[in-house]
Amino acid sequence: MELTAEIAAFRAGAGDPGRLVGEFRRAVLLVPRSGGSGDGEGGLMSALSGGIRWFYAFTDEGAMARFAEARGEADREWPYLAILGARLADAVVPEVDGPAGVAVNVADPEGSMMFPPVAGIVPDSCAVDIEPETGSAAGVA
């Protein structure tokens, strides 16, 4: 099943978290590049919310176009990087100073999904639910 179908199944209460994360990791995602919008020249477009850096990622150009439209920026060019979800989570997220996750298809109210900085999605060294000193789940003795 592709990522958008797995997101729909999960949102409908019939999805499996493991399959959802697996599809996210296997999916080729389109990540817009920032261009002087305050996110850093040439970096990947993201937003800071609740102390977490969220990278915007889209399953196709249509989803990214809906995001551009929602921002009132559909009239400009949207350069992007095509990257596997696994590479985004395993290589890009660790480069961020602080917790980071991935927001997929954020302009699609019924098709969006957040992949937060937790164990099983991002490397344990970046997961907010892992105690750095012990390597165990936060709050668990």
Results as ranks from 00 to 15, higher is better:
Arg25Glu: 10
Val118Cys: 00
Glu61Tyr: 04
Ala68Trp: 08
Val122Ala: 01
Gly98Cys: 00
Ala63Tyr: 08
Val21Lys: 14
Gly40Ile: 05
Glu69Asn: 07
Glu110Ala: 05
Gly98Val: 01
Asp108Ile: 00
Val102Pro: 00
Phe24Leu: 13
Pro99Asp: 02
Ala119Asn: 04
Ala82Asn: 07
Ala68Gly: 12
Arg25Ile: 14
Val31Leu: 10
Ala74Glu: 15
Ala103Gly: 03
Asp39His: 06
Gly43Ile: 04
Leu44His: 10
Pro94Met: 02
Ala103Val: 03
Ser46Ala: 15
Val96Gly: 02
Ala63Asn: 11
Ser46Val: 05
Asp75Glu: 15
Pro94Ala: 02
Gly101Arg: 11
Gly35Ile: 04
Arg26Ile: 02
Ser37Trp: 09
Ala63Ile: 09
Met45Ala: 13
Leu29His: 01
Ser34Gly: 13
Asp60Gln: 01
Val93Ser: 05
Gly50Thr: 05
Leu30Lys: 15
Phe24Arg: 15
Arg25Lys: 15
Ala27Phe: 09
Glu110Gly: 07
Asp60Cys: 12
Phe55Arg: 14
Glu41Gln: 12
Ala107Lys: 09
Ala86Leu: 14
Glu41Arg: 08
Glu77Trp: 07
Tyr80Ser: 15
Ser112Thr: 14
Ala107Tyr: 03
Ser46Trp: 12
Ala63Thr: 14
Pro123Lys: 01
Ala103Ser: 11
Val102Gln: 03
Ser125Tyr: 00
Ser46Asp: 11
Arg87Ala: 13
Ala82Ile: 04
Asp39Trp: 01
